[in-house]
């Protein structure tokens, strides 16, 4: 609705100085989806031997060392040991790419490396190999506080993401903020609503029975309000992802998390 856009724009102007906009969650009140889960699901995430996401991390570790593409190079040939070279990297993504002049997600970065350095075809979104590589990469940031969006060049895209987050959409006419800022800790048909923090992705969702990306999760919420979900990799989804990460500033990465 136009009035919403106008309102969001007006709020932006008024609130240019203080960092926190109306309706936003104060930094010390930010909580991962983990804190909303029952003890069984928490235990599953906490124990690497029972966390199904770790199988993907192991697959990713194998792919990291596997030569591929016509360049016949593996990730390890350029980046060395991921345990040091990839430490903290995912906590900065989506990150601004100077060549493209826009932010790219970790998945997109992996496919850029495949195209530019491995001369390999891109891995499809939500394919097992892409999830495994991003899970392995992001796992190297487990415990690292999120800093994505700090880069001044990323700011306009953070703002774009914020506008999308505040925009009501779909047949049910609801915005992300209506649930995840205004109603977290309440229940939607009996299920707890969380703050929608992006800390654990890609993560294992019991309902999906597999690992899934943040984009898959966002598309699910859009489908939930009966809106036309944005395509994987679209500028809108990347901007939303970037806003969510900047909104989670300081929260530690959890990849691979487990969610109900």
């Amino acid at each position: 609705m136009m009035s919403w856009r106008a309102m969001a724009a007006a709020t932006l102007l008024v609130a240019a100085a203080p960092a926190l906009l109306a309706g936003e969650i104060a930094p010390d009140a930010r909580r991962s989806g983990y804190s909303f889960m029952g003890p069984d699901t928490r235990a599953m995430q906490d124990d690497d031997t029972s966390n199904p996401g770790m199988l993907f991390v192991l697959d990713g570790e194998a792919l990291w060392a596997k030569k591929t593409g016509s360049a016949d190079k593996a990730c390890v040939d350029c980046h060395g040991d991921a345990r040091s070279s990839m430490k903290g990297v995912a906590a900065r993504y989506p990150a601004f790419d100077n060549a493209l002049g826009r932010p790219v997600t970790l998945d997109q970065r992996i496919n850029l490396c495949r195209a530019n350095h491995q001369q390999a075809t891109p891995l499809p979104y939500e394919s097992r190999d892409l999830l495994a590589l991003s899970a392995f990469t992001a796992h190297q940031s487990r415990g690292t506080p999120i800093t994505a969006g700090d880069d001044p060049q990323a700011k306009p895209f953070v703002e774009q993401g914020r506008a999308l987050y505040m925009q009501r959409e779909g047949q049910l006419n609801l915005a992300c903020t209506n649930c995840h800022d205004d109603n977290f800790d309440k229940r939607l048909a009996g299920a707890p609503i969380t703050q929608g923090q992006p800390t654990g992705y890609p993560l294992y969702r019991l309902e999906w029975q597999t690992l899934g990306s943040l984009e898959r999760r966002l598309r699910s919420c859009m489908t939930g309000v009966r809106a036309q979900a944005y395509d994987y990799g679209s500028p809108e989804l990347v901007a939303l992802e970037l806003y969510l990460m900047s909104r989670a500033h300081g929260l530690p990465m959890e990849t691979p998390a487990v969610r109900p």
Binding site: M37, G38, D40, T41, L188, A189, G190, A191, P192, R205, L206, E207, W208, Q209, R216, R219, S220, C221, T223, G224, P260
Partner: peptide, 16 residues
Amino acid sequence: GEGWGEGVPTIENPQE
């Protein structure tokens, strides 16, 4: 599995 859960609930615990 898309949306906020589809089809038959797989988990008994109403919280989940």
